[in-house]
Structure formats: C-alpha cells, structure tokens
Amino acid sequence: MSLTNIFDIAGTGMAAQSLRLNTTASNIANADSASSSEGDVYRARKPIFSAIQQDVMSQALGGQAGELSASQGVQVQGIVESDAPLDMRFQPDHPMANEQGYVMYPNVNVVEEMADMLSASRSFQTNVSIMDSAKTMMQRLLTLGQ
C-alpha cells in the first residue's frame, strides 16, 4: 500500500531537517567559542543530504513491475566540517591568545546559519503537512463503502 510509503518519505524528510536544525543550533551556540590553536577551534558543521534510491535491479528481478522506481525519501550522508578560513582576531589580552597575540574564532557565519534555520524549519513544516494530508487520505479510504 503506497499511502504508507508517504509516511516513510515525509518521516525521512523530517528527520533530515531536524538534524539540519540540530547542526545549526550547534553552530550558533559555538559561534564565539574561542581557541588558541587552529586544531582545537570549532568549525561550522553541515549535513550532506542525498536521495534514497530504490534498488532498481532487485525491483526488476523481483517482478514488481507495477511499482514506480522513484527514490524513497532523503537521507543524511554525513556531517562535514566547513573548511572556510577561521576568524583570527588580534586580542593580546585575551587569556587564550597565542604567542603572536591572536585568538582563533570559529568559521561560523551567523547570518548564513539563521537563513539555514529558516529554510530547515519551513521544509520541516512542509513535510508535516504532507504527512497530515496522507493521514486524511488514509482515513477517508477507511470509510469506503460506509
């Protein structure tokens, strides 16, 4: 029954978007986490999304010819750290300043993160309304013949 697939698809979308919101929250929370060395400093984290594809071969050999081979939702391939240049500030009186008097700040762009947050929460809402529609369609279907 493919109506239940819609729940799965919207579910993967919601999971991916909430993970994206999670990284955004982490990035904004750590936007000012200073460090004295380049290795220790926090770097902006970004999730990588990709579509989940159905196994075309197994479908062709399994004989389910009527099924559509669309992809089945979205998955998070992994979380990568941004390699944008770090923010080096000259603050000799800062307790974490290095020998040259520089303090490393994360490469988090707060404006970008806010835009990302809005996009993620809108996409999450869209997936919720899709799931709601699927639920209504299913409930209607259960009243068939009554």
Binding site: A10, A16, A51, A70, N127, I130, S133
Partner: peptide
C-alpha cells in the same frame, strides 16, 4: 502523491 511527497522531502 507518493512521488510528490518524495520531491518535497528532497527539497534541499
């Protein structure tokens, strides 16, 4: 509906 839901899940 399934295909369209999949499009929306992959909007990003």
């Amino acid at each position: 509906a399934e295909v369209l839901a999949n499009n929306l899940a992959n909007a990003d």
